Simulated scan of single mutants.
Amino acid sequence: PPQPKPAQRRPAQPKLTKSQAAAVAAYDKALIAFKKILAERRAQIEALKSPVKAPAQKRAKKPKALPNLPGQAIYLARLKVMSTYADLTDALPSRIGRPNAYGVPPAFFEAGIEPLIEEYAELFRIMQAPPAFAQSSDAPLRDVVQLGMAIARAKGADDAAAERAGLIALGIFFAETNARQNIGNARSNTYKGSLQTGPSEDHNGRRKWAAIKKKIAKLDPALAARDDAEEARAAGIDQRFNHWTAVRNGLMNAHADLLGDIPAIAAMMPDEIDQMKLFQLIQIIPTPTRAALKSGNVATYEISDRRVMGFLRNNSIFTFGKADRARTSATYREILDAMWLFNSKFEKARARFAAIKRGAAE
Protein backbone atom coordinates (compact mmCIF):
# COMPACT_ATOMS: atom_id res chain seq x y z
CA PRO A 1 0.00 0.00 0.00
CA PRO A 2 1.14 3.60 -0.65
CA GLN A 3 2.96 5.14 2.26
CA PRO A 4 1.56 8.40 3.75
CA LYS A 5 3.54 11.50 2.88
CA PRO A 6 5.47 12.96 5.75
CA ALA A 7 3.93 16.09 7.17
CA GLN A 8 5.46 19.22 5.69
CA ARG A 9 7.13 21.44 8.20
CA ARG A 10 6.86 25.20 8.10
CA PRO A 11 10.15 26.92 7.57
CA ALA A 12 11.67 27.86 10.88
CA GLN A 13 11.29 31.52 11.73
CA PRO A 14 14.59 33.30 12.22
CA LYS A 15 15.37 33.57 15.90
CA LEU A 16 15.26 37.10 17.17
CA THR A 17 18.33 38.64 18.64
CA LYS A 18 18.16 39.97 22.17
CA SER A 19 17.82 43.55 20.94
CA GLN A 20 15.12 42.59 18.42
CA ALA A 21 13.13 40.74 21.07
CA ALA A 22 13.42 43.76 23.36
CA ALA A 23 12.12 46.03 20.60
CA VAL A 24 9.11 43.76 20.02
CA ALA A 25 8.37 43.64 23.75
CA ALA A 26 8.68 47.42 24.14
CA TYR A 27 6.23 48.06 21.31
CA ASP A 28 3.74 45.49 22.58
CA LYS A 29 3.91 47.03 26.05
CA ALA A 30 3.43 50.57 24.67
CA LEU A 31 0.44 49.44 22.58
CA ILE A 32 -1.23 47.81 25.60
CA ALA A 33 -0.69 50.98 27.66
CA PHE A 34 -2.14 53.15 24.87
CA LYS A 35 -5.28 51.02 24.63
CA LYS A 36 -5.65 51.10 28.40
CA ILE A 37 -5.45 54.89 28.75
CA LEU A 38 -7.84 55.40 25.82
CA ALA A 39 -10.37 53.09 27.45
CA GLU A 40 -9.90 54.82 30.80
CA ARG A 41 -10.51 58.29 29.37
CA ARG A 42 -13.53 57.10 27.42
CA ALA A 43 -15.02 55.53 30.55
CA GLN A 44 -14.44 58.73 32.53
CA ILE A 45 -16.09 60.86 29.86
CA GLU A 46 -19.08 58.52 29.55
CA ALA A 47 -19.47 58.40 33.33
CA LEU A 48 -19.59 62.18 33.49
CA LYS A 49 -22.20 62.32 30.73
CA SER A 50 -24.38 59.50 32.09
CA PRO A 51 -23.72 58.73 35.77
CA VAL A 52 -24.70 55.22 36.75
CA LYS A 53 -27.74 55.23 39.02
CA ALA A 54 -27.15 53.28 42.21
CA PRO A 55 -29.92 51.33 43.96
CA ALA A 56 -32.00 53.44 46.34
CA GLN A 57 -30.60 51.72 49.41
CA LYS A 58 -27.03 52.42 48.37
CA ARG A 59 -25.26 55.74 48.29
CA ALA A 60 -24.71 56.83 44.70
CA LYS A 61 -21.09 57.00 43.67
CA LYS A 62 -19.89 60.29 42.29
CA PRO A 63 -18.65 59.87 38.70
CA LYS A 64 -14.88 59.87 38.53
CA ALA A 65 -13.70 63.26 37.32
CA LEU A 66 -11.23 63.71 34.53
CA PRO A 67 -7.78 64.61 35.83
CA ASN A 68 -6.21 67.99 35.25
CA LEU A 69 -4.76 68.01 31.71
CA PRO A 70 -6.56 64.81 30.70
CA GLY A 71 -4.98 64.79 27.25
CA GLN A 72 -1.38 64.64 28.44
CA ALA A 73 -1.31 60.98 29.38
CA ILE A 74 -2.91 59.79 26.15
CA TYR A 75 -0.66 62.12 24.13
CA LEU A 76 2.46 60.67 25.75
CA ALA A 77 1.10 57.16 25.27
CA ARG A 78 0.65 57.82 21.54
CA LEU A 79 4.20 59.15 21.29
CA LYS A 80 5.45 56.03 23.05
CA VAL A 81 3.63 53.77 20.59
CA MET A 82 5.11 55.56 17.58
CA SER A 83 8.55 55.80 19.14
CA THR A 84 8.77 52.14 20.08
CA TYR A 85 7.44 51.20 16.64
CA ALA A 86 10.24 53.24 15.04
CA ASP A 87 12.73 51.34 17.20
CA LEU A 88 11.05 48.07 16.23
CA THR A 89 11.24 48.75 12.49
CA ASP A 90 14.86 49.84 12.89
CA ALA A 91 15.59 46.47 14.50
CA LEU A 92 13.26 44.49 12.21
CA PRO A 93 12.72 46.25 8.85
CA SER A 94 10.37 43.42 7.88
CA ARG A 95 7.82 44.89 10.31
CA ILE A 96 7.40 48.00 8.15
CA GLY A 97 3.87 47.65 6.85
CA ARG A 98 1.47 49.24 4.39
CA PRO A 99 0.86 52.99 4.00
CA ASN A 100 -1.56 54.50 6.49
CA ALA A 101 -4.44 56.95 6.26
CA TYR A 102 -2.49 59.77 7.92
CA GLY A 103 0.46 59.96 5.57
CA VAL A 104 2.86 59.03 8.36
CA PRO A 105 5.99 57.22 7.10
CA PRO A 106 5.19 53.49 7.57
CA ALA A 107 8.38 52.97 9.57
CA PHE A 108 6.86 55.13 12.31
CA PHE A 109 3.27 53.91 12.34
CA GLU A 110 1.52 50.56 12.04
CA ALA A 111 -1.54 51.02 9.83
CA GLY A 112 -3.47 48.42 11.82
CA ILE A 113 -3.82 50.78 14.78
CA GLU A 114 -5.67 53.49 12.82
CA PRO A 115 -8.90 52.86 14.82
CA LEU A 116 -6.99 53.69 18.00
CA ILE A 117 -5.87 57.01 16.53
CA GLU A 118 -9.45 57.76 15.50
CA GLU A 119 -10.53 57.17 19.10
CA TYR A 120 -7.63 59.32 20.30
CA ALA A 121 -8.71 62.20 18.04
CA GLU A 122 -12.34 61.88 19.12
CA LEU A 123 -11.39 62.02 22.80
CA PHE A 124 -9.42 65.21 22.18
CA ARG A 125 -12.40 66.71 20.34
CA ILE A 126 -14.53 66.08 23.41
CA MET A 127 -11.95 67.20 25.98
CA GLN A 128 -11.07 70.37 24.05
CA ALA A 129 -14.58 71.47 23.16
CA PRO A 130 -15.05 75.26 23.23
CA PRO A 131 -16.53 76.71 26.42
CA ALA A 132 -20.20 77.66 26.33
CA PHE A 133 -19.42 81.38 26.16
CA ALA A 134 -17.09 81.09 23.15
CA GLN A 135 -17.95 83.29 20.18
CA SER A 136 -17.62 81.42 16.92
CA SER A 137 -17.53 82.54 13.32
CA ASP A 138 -19.69 81.30 10.47
CA ALA A 139 -16.65 81.44 8.18
CA PRO A 140 -13.63 80.69 10.39
CA LEU A 141 -11.28 79.76 7.55
CA ARG A 142 -12.07 82.84 5.52
CA ASP A 143 -11.53 84.99 8.62
CA VAL A 144 -8.04 83.57 9.08
CA VAL A 145 -7.17 84.21 5.44
CA GLN A 146 -8.52 87.77 5.49
CA LEU A 147 -6.65 88.65 8.68
CA GLY A 148 -3.38 87.19 7.38
CA MET A 149 -3.71 89.16 4.15
CA ALA A 150 -4.69 92.40 5.90
CA ILE A 151 -1.77 92.23 8.31
CA ALA A 152 0.67 91.49 5.48
CA ARG A 153 -0.61 94.47 3.46
CA ALA A 154 -0.27 96.72 6.51
CA LYS A 155 3.33 95.54 6.75
CA GLY A 156 4.01 96.51 3.13
CA ALA A 157 3.32 93.30 1.22
CA ASP A 158 2.07 93.47 -2.36
CA ASP A 159 -1.00 91.52 -3.51
CA ALA A 160 0.93 88.34 -4.34
CA ALA A 161 2.77 88.31 -1.01
CA ALA A 162 -0.43 89.13 0.86
CA GLU A 163 -2.15 86.16 -0.77
CA ARG A 164 0.68 83.91 0.36
CA ALA A 165 0.33 85.38 3.86
CA GLY A 166 -3.33 84.32 3.85
CA LEU A 167 -2.31 80.76 2.98
CA ILE A 168 0.37 80.71 5.68
CA ALA A 169 -2.07 82.03 8.30
CA LEU A 170 -4.50 79.27 7.37
CA GLY A 171 -1.71 76.70 7.63
CA ILE A 172 -0.97 77.85 11.18
CA PHE A 173 -4.66 77.50 12.07
CA PHE A 174 -4.69 73.91 10.79
CA ALA A 175 -1.41 73.10 12.55
CA GLU A 176 -2.51 74.51 15.89
CA THR A 177 -6.08 73.24 16.13
CA ASN A 178 -6.87 71.15 13.04
CA ALA A 179 -8.93 74.21 12.00
CA ARG A 180 -11.25 73.97 15.00
CA GLN A 181 -12.13 77.35 16.42
CA ASN A 182 -12.20 78.46 20.05
CA ILE A 183 -11.00 75.15 21.47
CA GLY A 184 -9.50 74.58 24.89
CA ASN A 185 -6.36 72.54 25.45
CA ALA A 186 -6.36 69.15 27.14
CA ARG A 187 -2.60 69.30 27.59
CA SER A 188 -2.16 72.85 28.89
CA ASN A 189 -3.88 75.28 31.22
CA THR A 190 -2.15 78.19 29.47
CA TYR A 191 -2.68 77.91 25.73
CA LYS A 192 -6.24 78.27 24.46
CA GLY A 193 -8.35 79.36 21.51
CA SER A 194 -8.15 79.28 17.74
CA LEU A 195 -4.41 79.97 17.62
CA GLN A 196 -3.55 78.36 20.99
CA THR A 197 -2.02 81.44 22.60
CA GLY A 198 -1.29 82.22 26.23
CA PRO A 199 -2.71 85.31 28.00
CA SER A 200 0.49 87.35 27.60
CA GLU A 201 0.76 86.51 23.89
CA ASP A 202 -2.86 87.43 23.35
CA HIS A 203 -2.47 90.78 25.13
CA ASN A 204 0.73 91.54 23.24
CA GLY A 205 -0.97 90.82 19.93
CA ARG A 206 -3.92 93.01 20.87
CA ARG A 207 -1.55 95.88 21.66
CA LYS A 208 0.29 95.47 18.35
CA TRP A 209 -3.01 95.40 16.44
CA ALA A 210 -4.08 98.68 18.04
CA ALA A 211 -0.86 100.25 16.76
CA ILE A 212 -1.67 99.44 13.11
CA LYS A 213 -5.47 99.62 13.25
CA LYS A 214 -5.63 103.07 11.57
CA LYS A 215 -3.49 101.79 8.71
CA ILE A 216 -5.68 98.69 8.41
CA ALA A 217 -8.78 100.92 8.28
CA LYS A 218 -7.35 102.90 5.35
CA LEU A 219 -6.41 99.77 3.44
CA ASP A 220 -9.58 97.79 4.16
CA PRO A 221 -12.44 99.76 5.77
CA ALA A 222 -14.80 96.77 5.69
CA LEU A 223 -12.34 94.58 7.60
CA ALA A 224 -11.78 97.34 10.16
CA ALA A 225 -15.54 97.64 10.64
CA ARG A 226 -15.78 93.88 11.18
CA ASP A 227 -12.99 94.21 13.72
CA ASP A 228 -14.87 96.91 15.61
CA ALA A 229 -17.92 94.67 15.75
CA GLU A 230 -15.93 91.69 17.04
CA GLU A 231 -14.20 93.84 19.66
CA ALA A 232 -17.60 94.97 20.93
CA ARG A 233 -18.92 91.42 20.84
CA ALA A 234 -15.93 90.11 22.84
CA ALA A 235 -16.18 92.78 25.53
CA GLY A 236 -16.03 91.11 28.93
CA ILE A 237 -14.66 87.73 27.80
CA ASP A 238 -11.20 86.35 27.21
CA GLN A 239 -10.50 87.43 23.61
CA ARG A 240 -8.93 84.04 22.89
CA PHE A 241 -12.48 82.65 22.82
CA ASN A 242 -13.71 84.98 20.12
CA HIS A 243 -12.42 83.39 16.93
CA TRP A 244 -11.72 86.67 15.13
CA THR A 245 -9.83 88.36 17.96
CA ALA A 246 -7.97 85.16 18.88
CA VAL A 247 -6.58 84.77 15.36
CA ARG A 248 -5.90 88.48 14.98
CA ASN A 249 -4.01 88.71 18.27
CA GLY A 250 -2.11 85.49 17.69
CA LEU A 251 -0.91 86.52 14.24
CA MET A 252 0.03 89.99 15.45
CA ASN A 253 1.97 88.65 18.41
CA ALA A 254 4.21 86.18 16.62
CA HIS A 255 3.97 86.56 12.87
CA ALA A 256 3.05 90.08 11.80
CA ASP A 257 6.52 91.42 11.03
CA LEU A 258 7.49 88.31 9.07
CA LEU A 259 4.29 88.37 7.03
CA GLY A 260 5.69 91.52 5.43
CA ASP A 261 8.92 89.68 4.53
CA ILE A 262 7.36 86.86 2.55
CA PRO A 263 9.16 87.63 -0.76
CA ALA A 264 12.56 87.31 0.95
CA ILE A 265 11.46 84.16 2.79
CA ALA A 266 10.11 82.65 -0.44
CA ALA A 267 13.44 83.33 -2.14
CA MET A 268 15.19 81.22 0.52
CA MET A 269 12.41 78.62 0.81
CA PRO A 270 10.35 78.48 -2.42
CA ASP A 271 8.18 75.54 -1.37
CA GLU A 272 4.81 76.56 0.13
CA ILE A 273 4.78 73.72 2.64
CA ASP A 274 8.27 74.67 3.82
CA GLN A 275 7.10 78.24 4.27
CA MET A 276 4.17 77.13 6.41
CA LYS A 277 6.53 74.98 8.45
CA LEU A 278 8.84 77.95 9.03
CA PHE A 279 5.97 80.06 10.30
CA GLN A 280 4.86 77.17 12.51
CA LEU A 281 8.37 77.09 13.94
CA ILE A 282 7.85 80.74 14.89
CA GLN A 283 5.16 79.35 17.20
CA ILE A 284 7.48 76.68 18.62
CA ILE A 285 11.02 78.13 18.64
CA PRO A 286 10.66 81.81 17.68
CA THR A 287 14.11 83.17 18.58
CA PRO A 288 16.26 80.65 16.69
CA THR A 289 13.85 80.69 13.73
CA ARG A 290 14.15 84.46 13.42
CA ALA A 291 17.92 84.10 13.65
CA ALA A 292 17.85 81.47 10.90
CA LEU A 293 15.84 83.80 8.65
CA LYS A 294 18.23 86.67 9.30
CA SER A 295 21.19 84.45 8.43
CA GLY A 296 20.23 84.50 4.75
CA ASN A 297 20.47 80.71 4.47
CA VAL A 298 17.73 79.07 6.49
CA ALA A 299 18.43 75.54 5.28
CA THR A 300 21.97 75.35 6.66
CA TYR A 301 21.37 77.23 9.91
CA GLU A 302 22.07 74.78 12.74
CA ILE A 303 20.59 74.44 16.21
CA SER A 304 22.44 72.67 19.01
CA ASP A 305 20.85 74.15 22.13
CA ARG A 306 19.44 71.35 24.32
CA ARG A 307 16.48 73.46 25.43
CA VAL A 308 15.51 74.24 21.85
CA MET A 309 15.84 70.60 20.83
CA GLY A 310 13.54 69.81 23.76
CA PHE A 311 10.91 72.25 22.45
CA LEU A 312 11.09 70.53 19.07
CA ARG A 313 10.62 67.10 20.63
CA ASN A 314 7.65 68.35 22.61
CA ASN A 315 6.06 69.19 19.27
CA SER A 316 6.63 65.80 17.63
CA ILE A 317 9.87 66.75 15.87
CA PHE A 318 12.81 64.37 16.47
CA THR A 319 10.58 62.52 18.91
CA PHE A 320 10.17 59.05 17.49
CA GLY A 321 12.74 56.35 18.06
CA LYS A 322 16.09 56.23 19.82
CA ALA A 323 17.98 57.59 16.82
CA ASP A 324 15.86 60.76 16.68
CA ARG A 325 15.88 61.25 20.44
CA ALA A 326 19.67 60.94 20.52
CA ARG A 327 20.14 63.92 18.20
CA THR A 328 21.90 66.87 19.81
CA SER A 329 21.74 69.22 16.82
CA ALA A 330 19.97 69.75 13.51
CA THR A 331 19.96 72.13 10.57
CA TYR A 332 16.71 73.82 9.59
CA ARG A 333 16.55 71.65 6.50
CA GLU A 334 16.65 68.58 8.74
CA ILE A 335 14.05 70.13 11.06
CA LEU A 336 11.69 70.90 8.18
CA ASP A 337 12.08 67.37 6.85
CA ALA A 338 11.36 65.97 10.33
CA MET A 339 8.06 67.89 10.51
CA TRP A 340 6.27 65.19 8.50
CA LEU A 341 3.37 65.05 10.95
CA PHE A 342 2.45 68.58 9.80
CA ASN A 343 2.42 67.73 6.09
CA SER A 344 -1.18 66.52 5.91
CA LYS A 345 -2.40 69.56 7.87
CA PHE A 346 -0.68 71.98 5.55
CA GLU A 347 -1.93 70.12 2.48
CA LYS A 348 -5.48 70.45 3.82
CA ALA A 349 -4.88 74.16 4.40
CA ARG A 350 -3.65 74.55 0.83
CA ALA A 351 -6.70 72.77 -0.56
CA ARG A 352 -9.11 74.85 1.52
CA PHE A 353 -7.31 78.05 0.58
CA ALA A 354 -7.76 77.22 -3.09
CA ALA A 355 -11.47 76.59 -2.45
CA ILE A 356 -11.81 79.94 -0.69
CA LYS A 357 -10.18 81.67 -3.66
CA ARG A 358 -12.77 80.01 -5.92
CA GLY A 359 -15.53 81.40 -3.71
CA ALA A 360 -16.61 78.04 -2.33
CA ALA A 361 -18.61 77.92 0.90
CA GLU A 362 -16.89 76.54 3.97
Results as ranks from 00 to 15, higher is better:
residue 174 F to A: 04
residue 120 Y to Q: 01
residue 115 P to D: 07
residue 153 R to T: 03
residue 150 A to E: 02
residue 225 A to Q: 15
residue 226 R to I: 10
residue 124 F to E: 00
residue 177 T to I: 07
residue 147 L to W: 03
residue 144 V to I: 14
residue 229 A to C: 10
residue 131 P to V: 13
residue 207 R to H: 14
residue 110 E to I: 10
residue 131 P to I: 07
residue 120 Y to L: 06
residue 101 A to W: 08
residue 123 L to Y: 01
residue 186 A to D: 05
residue 199 P to L: 08
residue 175 A to H: 01
residue 173 F to K: 01
residue 197 T to P: 00
residue 217 A to C: 08
residue 220 D to V: 06
residue 157 A to G: 08
residue 117 I to K: 05
residue 195 L to V: 05
residue 178 N to M: 07
residue 205 G to D: 02
residue 98 R to H: 12
residue 174 F to K: 02
residue 180 R to M: 06
residue 101 A to H: 07
residue 227 D to G: 12
residue 225 A to E: 15
residue 180 R to F: 04
residue 146 Q to G: 04
residue 184 G to D: 01
residue 207 R to N: 13
residue 201 E to Y: 11
residue 106 P to G: 08
residue 206 R to N: 06
residue 176 E to K: 04
residue 235 A to E: 15
residue 177 T to G: 05
residue 127 M to N: 08
residue 192 K to E: 09
residue 106 P to T: 13
residue 132 A to M: 13
residue 127 M to F: 08
residue 187 R to G: 10
residue 113 I to D: 01
residue 177 T to H: 02
residue 149 M to Q: 12
residue 168 I to T: 02
residue 212 I to K: 01
residue 97 G to K: 11
residue 159 D to M: 09
residue 196 Q to M: 11
residue 134 A to L: 05
residue 171 G to E: 02
residue 113 I to H: 02
residue 206 R to E: 08
residue 212 I to H: 06
residue 234 A to L: 09
residue 149 M to S: 03
residue 181 Q to C: 04
residue 120 Y to K: 04
residue 172 I to C: 01
residue 155 K to A: 05
residue 165 A to V: 05
residue 101 A to N: 07
residue 236 G to Q: 06
residue 149 M to L: 12
residue 220 D to I: 11
residue 146 Q to T: 12
residue 173 F to E: 02
residue 202 D to K: 06
residue 192 K to S: 07
residue 113 I to G: 03
residue 100 N to I: 09
residue 153 R to Y: 02
residue 207 R to Q: 14
residue 120 Y to R: 04
residue 211 A to I: 12
residue 111 A to K: 14
residue 170 L to A: 08
residue 202 D to M: 10
residue 164 R to L: 11
residue 202 D to Y: 04
residue 136 S to Q: 14
residue 203 H to Y: 08
residue 180 R to G: 00
residue 132 A to H: 12
residue 167 L to G: 02
residue 172 I to D: 00
residue 230 E to H: 13
residue 118 E to I: 12
residue 231 E to D: 13
residue 220 D to G: 06
residue 233 R to S: 07
residue 151 I to N: 00
residue 165 A to P: 02
residue 111 A to C: 11
residue 160 A to G: 12
residue 130 P to L: 07
residue 209 W to D: 01
residue 229 A to E: 14
residue 129 A to N: 09
residue 111 A to G: 08
residue 221 P to F: 07
residue 127 M to W: 03
residue 113 I to S: 04
residue 210 A to L: 12
residue 124 F to S: 00
residue 148 G to I: 01
residue 112 G to T: 13
residue 210 A to Q: 14
residue 219 L to R: 01
residue 135 Q to G: 09
residue 164 R to N: 03
residue 152 A to T: 05
residue 217 A to R: 11
residue 208 K to P: 03
residue 217 A to F: 05
residue 166 G to W: 00
residue 194 S to M: 07
residue 106 P to K: 09
residue 214 K to D: 12
residue 166 G to M: 00
residue 214 K to V: 09
residue 201 E to M: 06
residue 112 G to W: 13
residue 193 G to T: 03
residue 161 A to V: 03
residue 142 R to P: 03
residue 125 R to C: 10
residue 207 R to F: 12
residue 118 E to T: 13
residue 235 A to F: 14
residue 107 A to P: 05
residue 223 L to D: 03
residue 191 Y to F: 08
residue 205 G to W: 00
residue 161 A to E: 00
residue 155 K to S: 11
residue 140 P to G: 10
residue 178 N to T: 10
residue 104 V to L: 15
residue 196 Q to I: 05
residue 153 R to K: 15
residue 158 D to Y: 15
residue 168 I to P: 00
residue 224 A to T: 09
